[in-house]
């Protein structure tokens, strides 16, 4: 038996919005640790890893480890039927052919339940090695979203260069080129800060299409963290307060 109750149900709605453009079908892993997912996009260029820790739920029960395969577009259709103020409870029994989403309005005067059919999904669970990254950038998530969106109107790829002076985002396209530099800035409110931790300068190029998909997680966190090392996938992490994270990995473009 699996049961997880989330008073701030809108969080689950936002989580789903942050992954459904990247992945069509995915296995959610339920354990005593929490509600987790690891899935790659169909072209194996990016990966999303989600963790909602069990202690972040108001009630959490997982009698044995379960994998629940869901079509994320269908899951999203159901979660969109929950109000933003609703409490959401997920339930599944051990036979595991359906998951039930129960929505309770804040006044408890409306209770809905939606039953989603589960599916068998072959998934490749990748081992992601622990890495010391050469550069870590923390910046406002809205700023990162704005930069990715703006640059994608000029070019298809972005070159991200981190040095002690700042982080530079550059693109080139048919109409011209663009460079945006964010300098380290620790003088403002914590959520507005840009912080650079640097072992050594690093420059990598990525497809903007994927980074734009990642920024669907912006409503989940005021800050985003980028971690980069030479010729390694970038890690783009959004921390979900008191619950866990949505973390994306994107393989770089590599010169022949």
């Amino acid at each position: 038996m699996f049961e997880a109750r989330l008073v701030q149900g809108s969080l689950l709605k936002k989580v789903l919005e942050s992954i459904k453009d990247l992945v069509t079908d995915a296995n959610f892993d339920c354990s005593n640790n929490g509600f987790a997912l690891q899935a790659m996009d169909s072209s194996h260029v990016s990966l999303v890893a989600l963790l909602l820790r069990s202690d972040g739920f108001e009630h959490y029960r997982c009698d044995r480890n379960m994998t629940m395969g869901m079509n994320l577009s269908n899951m999203s259709k159901m979660l969109k039927c929950a109000g933003n103020e609703d409490i959401i409870t997920m339930k599944a029994d051990d036979t595991g052919d359906v998951v039930t989403f129960m929505f309770e309005s804040p006044d408890q005067d409306k209770i809905s339940d939606f039953e989603l059919k589960l599916m068998d999904i072959d998934s490749e669970h990748l081992g992601i090695p622990d890495t010391e990254y050469a550069a870590t950038v923390k910046m406002p998530s809205s700023e990162f979203m704005r930069i990715c969106r703006d640059l994608s109107s000029i070019g298809d790829t972005v070159t991200i260069s981190v040095s002690k002076d700042g982080v530079k985002f550059s693109t080139t396209g048919d109409i011209g080129q663009a460079n945006i530099t964010c300098r380290q800035n620790t003088s403002v409110d914590k959520e507005e800060q840009t912080i650079i931790e640097l072992q050594e300068p690093v420059t990598l190029t990525f497809a903007l299409r994927y980074l734009n998909s990642f920024t669907k997680a912006t409503p989940l966190a005021p800050t985003v963290q980028l971690q980069m090392s030479k010729e390694l996938p970038v890690v783009v992490q959004y921390l979900i307060a008191d619950m866990g994270y949505v973390r994306y990995y994107l393989a770089p473009k590599i010169e022949d």
Binding site: V45, E124, L126, T157, K253, E255, D256
Partner: peptide, 14 residues
């Protein structure tokens, strides 16, 4: 030009 790398060349498969 630059080639898109696959994640599978960085992370260990099942």
């Amino acid at each position: 030009g630059a080639e898109q790398a696959s994640l599978l060349s960085f992370f260990k498969g099942p």
